[in-house]
Design a binder for these strands. Sequence first.
DNA 1: GGAAGTTTGGACCGCTGGTCCAATTTCAAG
DNA 2: CTTGAAATTGGACCAGCGGTCCAAACTTCC
Lengths: 224, 224
Amino acid sequence: MIGMTPPTPRNARRSDALSRGRIVEAAIEVLDATGEAGLTVRSLTAHLSTGRGAIYHHVANKEGLLASAADDIVGRVTAGAGDDEDPEQSIRLLALGIFDAIDAHPWVGTQLSREPGQPAVFRIWKSIGSQLQRLGVPGPARADAGSALVNYILGATAQYAAGPRRVTSDPDRKAYLDDLAARWAQHDPDPIVQDAASHLPEHDDRAQFLAGVDIFLTGITARG
Amino acid sequence: MIGMTPPTPRNARRSDALSRGRIVEAAIEVLDATGEAGLTVRSLTAHLSTGRGAIYHHVANKEGLLASAADDIVGRVTAGAGDDEDPEQSIRLLALGIFDAIDAHPWVGTQLSREPGQPAVFRIWKSIGSQLQRLGVPGPARADAGSALVNYILGATAQYAAGPRRVTSDPDRKAYLDDLAARWAQHDPDPIVQDAASHLPEHDDRAQFLAGVDIFLTGITARG
DNA sequence: GGAAGTTTGGACCGCTGGTCCAATTTCAAG
DNA sequence: CTTGAAATTGGACCAGCGGTCCAAACTTCC
């Protein structure tokens, strides 16, 4: 009978012990390989050749696992970003580092928009804050400036991660953008829309992201 | 036997006909009342006193339903925002309108970060773009400026919607922020963190959001 | 050597979004 | 007024999800 506790040969303890670190590492591998939707507790257990209970013994829930995975990726960026001589340049490099990390791991982009209190977001806040301090932005204004920049970065990367993201081949990407432009143009005869749609295929996400950072930096220094 | 097609008295056609509009309306009611997690196809059918198949006859899937619901809310904002004499002021009012809408309907904030091509995001792009044009920002720079503003607005509102959001009573809100500040301060002895944590309880999300809009506007006009 | 404690994995649970189809109503054609 | 085709409805059903639970197996320590 299938419902009863079966006398199957029960599990032996693994030689390569499970740990939270190994689980997070495996989760990142699965996320990178199959995307956010591809990470299920089942696919993770399969990847680790283990059972579900074993995972929940080390991790509270899937949400915490995603937060840890995102924190891991963001941590590599913030740790790698040193203090350039020019604080403005440090901010640019930090922002680009996050952009590139999310280009490589799109699931991080959506994850960061979910829970503001999570460690990964906290890391970004801290890095931005310290550069703004070096830049000489005074206390009260610094909170506004930091908030603006962090929210811009999170918003831009989330949109980018959810969109065309890593359409590797140029033809595919062009086809996607052409299609999007066509849908917009067809949907709305407004000249602004037509104009925007016509420029869409030639635009560069990364350059546009950086342009946004520069607009912000101009705004900060012009108000200082 | 329960598995067989039962000879139960079968359904009569409803007097109040179902339509896509009615379904979207009901979805907004459920979302406002019980939050994003509270909207399931089942809760929606219960609210409409109907069955699942009836809904899928009018709506492709839940994703499309959420996009329509968000578009409905955003549409009210962009329609209500007229052209102020000062285009900068129009942008401020538009941004605040979106902020307030997401304050009232937090689920919209998370929805907008999901699919960049969705109609609601398109609406925001269009409104911002037309104000930037009135502001005299030239073509190539307009795309960068619009992208910066839209991404800032989406990022800020998404973070706000996912965070303390509408903690109505002041004591609750203070308790939440105190707790968050304590967790940060305890987690990290860095003076920047300590300073930020100490200012946290007294900060005003809406004012900070507007300050961010002003930073970007300053940057856009200073570069013009 | 044996008891105590930890790690493991799979059965199980309640729930989800989505499909499918018989029953029913509507409405136009004859 | 009859009738049959088309449109609408609602619930049974499915595969899959995150999470709980616990007996079996392995470690460790006395």
